[in-house]
Computed example of a mutant assay.
Amino acid sequence: MWNQVRKLQKNRTVKYGIPMLLLVVGGSFGLREFTQIRYDAQKIKKKLDPALEARVNTQKQSVILEEEYEKVKDLDLGGWQNIRGPRPWEDSRESQDQQRSRLNKGT
């Protein structure tokens, strides 16, 4: 009996392989539990404020979209010009003044 136990203790598979397998399999179950805690905590944090939740209600969503469309409908979206921002080595006030003077000359 004791001879068999000593043979198993000297066996490399029993000495190194089985603990490694237990570590890998046990670690995956442990990590699953810890990550589940993280996602549960995120769900709790993401709950909406009741006032905001009432406003985002899907039944009222079409009414909100129609209101926004009425606001945007009257805007003039065709009369804009693309003005580039200053490069990192340029002075922002100086480049803005130059662009304003070019726009005023053109108008």
Rank of each mutant, 00 (worst) to 15 (best):
M1P: 10
W2K: 11
N3E: 14
N3Q: 14
N3T: 14
N3C: 04
Q4M: 14
Q4A: 11
Q4R: 15
Q4E: 15
V5W: 10
V5C: 06
V5H: 07
V5A: 14
V5M: 13
R6D: 13
R6Q: 05
K7E: 14
K7Q: 13
K7T: 04
L8M: 09
N11H: 10
N11S: 10
R12V: 14
T13R: 04
K15R: 15
K15A: 13
I18H: 02
I18W: 06
I18D: 03
I18M: 12
P19Y: 09
M20Y: 08
M20H: 01
L21E: 05
L22W: 02
L23W: 04
V25N: 01
V25C: 01
V25A: 04
G26S: 04
G27E: 02
G27I: 07
F29V: 12
G30R: 01
G30A: 08
L31P: 00
L31W: 02
L31D: 00
E33L: 14
E33Q: 03
F34S: 04
T35C: 02
T35E: 11
I37P: 00
R38K: 07
D40Q: 09
D40I: 00
D40W: 03
Q42Y: 10
K43M: 01
K43Q: 06
K43H: 03
K43Y: 07
K43C: 02
K45A: 12
K46L: 13
L48Q: 06
D49C: 15
D49L: 08
P50Q: 05
A51Y: 02
E53C: 00
A54S: 07
R55V: 07
V56I: 05
T58Y: 00
T58I: 04
Q59P: 02
Q59T: 12
Q61C: 02
S62I: 04
I64A: 08
L65Y: 11
E66T: 07
E67R: 05
E67Q: 08
Y69L: 10
Y69G: 01
E70H: 07
K71W: 10
K71A: 09
K73W: 03
K73F: 03
K73E: 13
G78R: 14
G78F: 10
G78S: 13
W80A: 15
N82W: 12
N82E: 15
N82D: 14
N82V: 08
I83S: 13
R84A: 11
R84S: 07
R84G: 03
G85C: 03
G85M: 04
P86G: 10
R87H: 02
W89C: 04
W89E: 15
W89Q: 13
E90L: 03
E94H: 05
R100V: 12
R102W: 09
L103N: 01
L103W: 05
K105P: 00
K105A: 11
G106W: 15
